[in-house]
């Protein structure tokens, strides 16, 4: 199955958002990356073909942006911010703990293919340092003593196939509670019973498919809402 065959509706909805097809290159690369695990040369050419672009242009884009991986990465890509101020608030200690626990250095993947470790630049969560992203899910306040718990949780989620793609299309954020448990941050639910009456618009508009609330319909969110099994 080609990318276009697997995701035809989503790809068409993405392209429809822009006046120029080329604008869809980043979203389609994310889609390809999640579909194939990383961006193989063939995947990049496929995206180029869908958008009728020279393949070189798409290779250039993949090389420029840091969230595109053109070589295999682990099931979980751990990205630790080591910028100022994080580096003075425990980021270096966190990286050291991760390296020691995983037995790898930066930009390496564990032999079981589970974790890739990267240093990244500012993640815009300086108040919750030290902070990392696991497949673009934020995890806040990751002190070194919480590393083992986090890794166990990520392994458990991978085993239960609750791993989300490396591109963050279904990302959720996590934090540690006061008593040290790792929990998913509660988001609002758009599906609660309606309590208020909104005055009806003169011409009711239906949401475009591209931003439909159930864009991630295939994902069972009920289990990811509860606290991690730790």
């Amino acid at each position: 199955m080609t990318l276009l065959e697997i995701h035809q509706a989503e790809i068409e909805a993405i392209i429809a958002r822009y006046a120029s097809k080329r604008s869809a290159v980043l979203p389609l690369l994310y889609l390809a990356q999640d579909t194939y695990g990383y961006l193989t040369d063939d995947a990049i050419r496929e995206v180029a073909a869908i958008l009728a672009l020279p393949a070189t242009d798409v290779f250039e884009v993949v090389g420029f942006y840091t969230l595109f991986y053109n070589r295999p990465v682990g099931t979980w890509v751990l990205q630790v911010c080591d910028d100022v101020p994080c580096c003075y608030c425990g980021a270096e200690e966190l990286i050291a703990a991760l390296k020691q626990t995983l037995g790898i250095s930066e930009d390496e993947t564990t032999s079981d293919g589970m974790f890739t470790l990267q240093r990244v630049k500012c993640l815009a969560a300086c108040d919750r340092a030290p902070v990392l992203q696991a497949n673009l899910d934020y995890v806040y306040d990751v002190t070194p003593d919480r590393v083992q718990m986090l890794l166990n949780d990520l392994r458990a989620r991978a085993a239960e196939a609750r791993k989300r793609g490396v591109s963050g299309r279904f990302a959720e954020d996590y934090e540690f509670t006061r008593d040290g448990r790792l929990v998913q941050i509660e988001r609002f639910s758009p599906y609660r019973p309606r309590e208020f009456v909104i005055e009806p618009p003169a011409a009711p508009a239906s949401p475009p498919s591209s931003v439909a609330p159930e864009a991630d319909a295939g994902l069972d969110r009920s289990d990811t809402r509860k606290a991690s099994p730790l």
């Binding site: 980043l26 942006y65 969230l67 993640l123 673009l136 899910d137 934020y138 963050g168 954020d173």
Partner: peptide
């Protein structure tokens, strides 16, 4: 920014 993946979903909903 690409890293605001969960926030992007919040916004889309």
């Amino acid at each position: 920014r690409g890293e605001f993946a969960a926030a992007a979903r919040t916004l889309e909903r």
